[in-house]
Design a protein around this nucleic acid. Structure first.
Lengths: 345, 345
DNA sequence: CTCAGTAATGAACACGTGTACATTTCATAA
DNA sequence: TTATGAAATGTACACGTGTTCATTACTGAG
């Protein structure tokens, strides 16, 4: 390991000058600066990140929570399948962090700890900030009340050192529903996902707004609340079909849910989009490969990751109050939606 | 921040005694130990991980490479879709690391750096060890020749401080092919994936072994080499169909490839498994939700993650030569395979 | 009682860096 | 020439921990 001491010796200056030459802030003569950089290049010196973290009282590490916090449960409250969406966000978070000189730590702490211990474990690691993809209520509260800068994804929060990034779920659901309406559908079943999650609730409201605007009376029999998982949507769709409800289209709360619904429809002898139109949400990679390829609402994973990092770093660097970011969504029309079938029976 | 100094003061001992009481090795009187633990509980003390890393000359951080190293490319050489498989492995790596008191860092270093800088950046972070899911040749070589303990996944390596974990791809492909043979198939097309990757090569060889053992002459016209991506497999399958080859089954190198193939078959008016049987590889979550649900070969992601962590930690703790781990694979029969169709034409 | 030996403990240094403060150098104006 | 100030640099301390080495307390044998 080559240290700044060796660099100083070779450059014929003191260690303090080396440090100043690197961190730029203080004034160093051009002469000395040049010699220092030459010595660094010769020796291949890189500062010891650990020692820097100790003396600066802060590391360059950002903790990102991707996995469920309780490892006794195989599923997170948001569902295993949501990880596939968040993986895309994570990848963009990673790129943006690296570009800005930060490291990414997974997970934020040992599982199963109390919120207090969770915060403490972040502190003993000198974590500079946190990005929350999956957060339990307890941890979210703990972070909000701590002074650790945190960016939440898909969760609305308020306070100092805290902000959030989310998609405009309401508008996305509205777009999807309006698309179905424009195809002539009037009886549209809604399976918006877990409405105790904000995302699910907003997707439900967005669809309802579009229906109301089109002058369609709400039919509570066509609204089904269920979890985010494929199987749950599958079961909900089966129930809906068994009840012989009258509908020609379904708006799903996520692509994985749409996949479950698609399966239920197919098993029931219905074809998509000839008999029933189907819209998903998220635009995961997989959508293009279902049969038929899924019409869906795209969430901008790149902007989500970048936006979270950019806002988090702003907070870390001192700007305590950072405005949240609401990202536009975009309807992607593929082949799971079509015109209303003519009534045969 | 509560420090060991405060604990020492409250317990009425010196800081050295506190340290010894925590790290166990040296002898401390029961009396003192008890007072120290009481003080720790009262104050809620947790050791400063950064300071520990500095003095121990080693952190408790394991770097895991999940994402492609060159962020100018949207795809890794192993393909974007392989991330979905490795995400499952990563989750198990994370759990096992946390259970053993280690942290997980993503990524291992800034992108686009030379192998020398890559190693140096690991060293300045005092990284205890590395798990490689996606590795370019240059980085793999750099790690092998460094003294940083490294566990490779799906890559065979030899040397000190280095070991690997992989599935028995050969046997898996053999199982899949034997399954097709047992259903009466004699004309089996092979799309084993990227055969410049070890996994692809082994899957090809496994299938060929099974065919040879059944006394079937190799038909090079039924072997198609292509990349791991859905689209590549889709195109390869289309070409195969356009050539009007005579086959009743396809063994794919991955589930995502199978999805592409399934699409090509469906578009060509063929149904699975009535006309053509199809086997995948990996058993990603998605397999259950294709139409029809995919017969495939399961790789044990839990054992893969655990095995890599367990072997890595063994190396970190001093046992330089650790044997590799070859994991058994398991055929999962769903509904994409069936008996040979009777010849109609 | 004395001496040796051992268990327990504290003082002090080391890890590699950033930075406040003191010191030196040098130019400029009175 | 001398005083003044700014610019550049070096010295020394701090960050929080682990660990060596010296010191103290205590036990048991002679």
């Amino acid at each position: 390991m080559v240290t700044s001491e060796q660099v100083a010796r070779l450059a014929g200056v003191s260690r303090a000058t080396v440090s100043r030459a690197l961190n730029g802030s203080a004034r160093v003569s051009d002469e000395a600066r040049k010699r220092v950089h030459a010595a660094i290049a010769t020796l291949g010196y890189e500062p010891d990140v650990v020692a820097q973290s100790l003396v600066r009282q802060r590391s360059n590490v950002i903790a990102v929570s991707l996995f469920p916090e309780d490892n006794s449960l195989p599923l997170s409250h948001l569902g295993r399948t949501s990880q596939y969406f968040y993986l895309g966000v994570l990848e963009n978070i990673e790129r943006e962090l690296v570009a800005r000189g930060y490291d990414l730590l997974l997970p934020s702490s040992p599982h199963g700890k109390s919120p207090e211990n969770y915060i403490r474990s972040l502190q003993t690691r000198r974590i500079a900030g946190v990005i929350m993809l999956h957060a339990t209520e307890a941890r979210a509260q703990a972070l909000i009340h701590s002074d650790i800068p945190t960016a939440f994804i898909d969760r609305v929060v308020q306070g100092n050192h805290v902000t959030y990034v989310k998609s405009d779920n309401l508008d996305g659901a509205r777009q999807a529903t309006e698309h179905l309406l424009s195809l002539g559908h009037r009886h549209i079943a809604l399976l918006p996902g877990q409405t105790t999650d904000l995302a699910g609730l907003e997707r439900l409201l967005g669809s309802q707004q579009a229906l109301a605007q089109a002058g369609i009376a709400p039919d509570s029999g066509l609204i089904r609340q269920c979890g985010w998982e494929v199987d749950e949507a599958y079961e909900a769709a089966r129930t809906l079909l068994a009840e012989r409800r009258d509908f020609t289209a379904i708006a799903a709360g996520s692509d994985f849910m749409a996949i479950g619904i698609l399966r239920a429809l197919t098993e029931h002898g219905l074809s998509v989009p000839e008999d029933i139109s189907l819209v998903g949400f998220d635009d995961i990679d997989f959508c293009q490969y279902t049969a038929p390829p899924l019409t869906t609402v795209r969430q901008d994973r790149l902007a989500m990751g970048r936006g979270a990092v950019q806002r988090l770093i702003t907070m870390i660097e001192g700007d305590e109050n950072t405005s949240p970011l609401i990202l536009p969504t975009q309807l992607i029309v593929r082949h799971s939606t079509g015109p209303v079938p003519r009534k045969v029976d």
